[in-house]
């Protein structure tokens, strides 16, 4: 029998499983919001969901449309500004997890949310960093969530908006390891529509940890949809979503299908 859930749903469930009870998670607009709220409504009730614009420990009843939405404020203990969230808590190393989307990612987890093509005359210009660069720089670990396509999983991102494990040196002329430019933390996982990728502890390069076998995804699919050579030797099948995870996602987190496009 064909599975009764989509790759998009598996991606959101897989990402939500990476968030732990008690952690302070700084969540970006879009799919990260959906996955974080799912975690909070299932296994991580005590997770502190932080939104850069307006809310510390938000527990929304209705899905916020962005991180400044009055829905994010409805149930929260503190309504700070980005000055407190970003410049105080994040910059001083007090945020456990950063949770981001992006347009392109490379083997070292560098993220691009600025432009495709040359910066001065791009094929596609996007909205820009928002808080992504800040979050990827100084959260203790970063989780990235995005559709798995060859044009998105690239050898080298066209522009490093948010630094990964190997990023720009302080002379901006070469690439160095992030520790060499004074950054802590780093990308922890990339959750895609095909599987979950992690980073090798010594080489800091992306490898496939799990793939969505139940949905007909093979490791060859991941190889074909990834521009750079990716280590598949550690890949194992992902555990499908539970009935509870799917029910909470569909009925409580995004019943309107704003992000899930039902």
């Amino acid at each position: 029998m064909a599975p009764n859930y989509s790759r998009l749903e598996m991606m959101v469930v897989a990402a939500s499983r990476l968030l732990c009870d008690g952690e302070k998670v700084l969540v970006g607009t879009g799919i990260p919001l959906v996955a974080a709220i799912l975690a909070k409504k299932t296994h991580a009730r005590g997770m502190v969901m932080v939104m850069e614009a307006v809310a510390f420990d938000s527990d929304p009843e209705s899905l916020p449309f962005c991180v400044a939405d009055p829905r994010a404020v409805y149930r929260t203990t503190w309504t700070p500004t980005s000055a407190e969230v970003m410049c105080h808590f994040l910059q001083s190393g007090k945020i456990d997890v950063g949770f981001l989307g992006g347009a392109q990612v490379d083997r070292f987890g560098n993220l691009n949310s600025t432009c495709i093509g040359a910066y001065g005359l791009p094929e596609k210009r996007f909205e820009g960093s928002g808080g992504a660069s800040d979050i990827a720089s100084l959260a203790k670990r970063t989780i990235i969530i995005m559709n798995h396509e060859k044009r998105r999983f690239v050898e080298r991102v066209d522009y490093i908006t948010s630094p990964g494990w190997k990023c720009r040196a302080l002379d901006w002329k070469s690439d160095v390891m992030r520790a060499d430019v004074g950054l802590d933390g780093g990308p922890h996982a990339v959750v895609s529509t095909l599987g979950v990728m992690k980073f090798d502890p010594s080489s800091k390069e992306m490898f496939v940890e799990t793939y969505y076998d139940d949905l007909g995804v093979s490791i060859d699919d991941i190889r074909h949809m990834t521009e750079f050579e990716i280590d598949l030797s550690r890949a194992r099948p992902m555990k499908p979503p539970t009935r509870e995870e799917l029910a909470v996602l569909r009925e409580k987190v995004d019943p309107e299908g704003i992000y899930m496009r039902y």
Partner: peptide, 10 residues
Amino acid sequence: TKFLRGSDIL
């Protein structure tokens, strides 16, 4: 600030 290091923004 401690932000922006490692990014093409600078």
